[in-house]
Amino acid sequence: MRKRHVVLDDIDRRILAALQADGRTTIQALAERVGLTTSPCLRRVRLLEEAGVIRGYVAVVDQAAVDLPVSVFISIKLERQREEELDRFAATVSRWPEVMECYLMTGQRDYLMRVVCADLPAYERFLKEKLTRLDGVASIESSFALEQVKHTHVLPLR
């Protein structure tokens, strides 16, 4: 589903930058930081939420701290790239909690996903009990992340 384009001004960008840095900031602190009074700041935040620019607020959890230290990047090629097969694959993997991200790709592979798990046996279970049981999967290629060099949720707003 494609979102409509929203035109952002400098104040919107400052609001978004501040909320990306600290989503728990109070509206009063946010208003001060971006140079507004509370009511106009709250109105702008609500408009950004309603437009889908702000999709939600979350706590960012350290995956190693909750015993999910392994990140696996998986390239998947389907037997056919017809719309119904693509939709079925996307709907199925969207329900799996281990899948953190999944992208429909151009190039040699159809999908690229990132899966988190506790260890190699947990990944093997995911592979055998879920991924390899999906109809229409032609090939699966897994790459294990050795180190996370950078991870951010902060978009580079101009």
Rank of each mutant, 00 (worst) to 15 (best):
M1L: 14
M1W: 09
H5V: 10
V7G: 01
L8Y: 05
D10V: 04
D12R: 07
R13L: 13
A21L: 12
G23S: 10
E32R: 15
R33E: 08
R33T: 12
C41G: 03
L42E: 15
V45W: 02
R46L: 13
L48C: 12
E50Y: 01
G52A: 10
V53R: 00
V53C: 02
G56L: 13
V58H: 06
V60P: 03
D62S: 14
Q63W: 07
Q63E: 09
Q63V: 13
A64F: 08
A65L: 15
L68N: 07
P69E: 04
S71G: 03
F73A: 12
I76T: 11
K77V: 02
L78K: 03
R80D: 11
R80N: 13
Q81R: 14
R82V: 14
F89I: 04
A91P: 01
A91T: 09
P97I: 11
E98P: 05
V99N: 02
G107W: 04
G107C: 08
Q108A: 15
R109E: 14
Y111H: 04
M113V: 08
V115E: 01
L120P: 01
P121L: 07
E124N: 13
R125C: 02
R125N: 12
F126E: 05
E129W: 12
R133V: 05
R133F: 02
L134V: 03
D135E: 15
D135F: 03
G136P: 03
V137E: 01
I140R: 01
E141D: 08
F144K: 01
F144A: 09
K150Q: 07
T152D: 05
V154T: 15
R158V: 14
R158N: 09
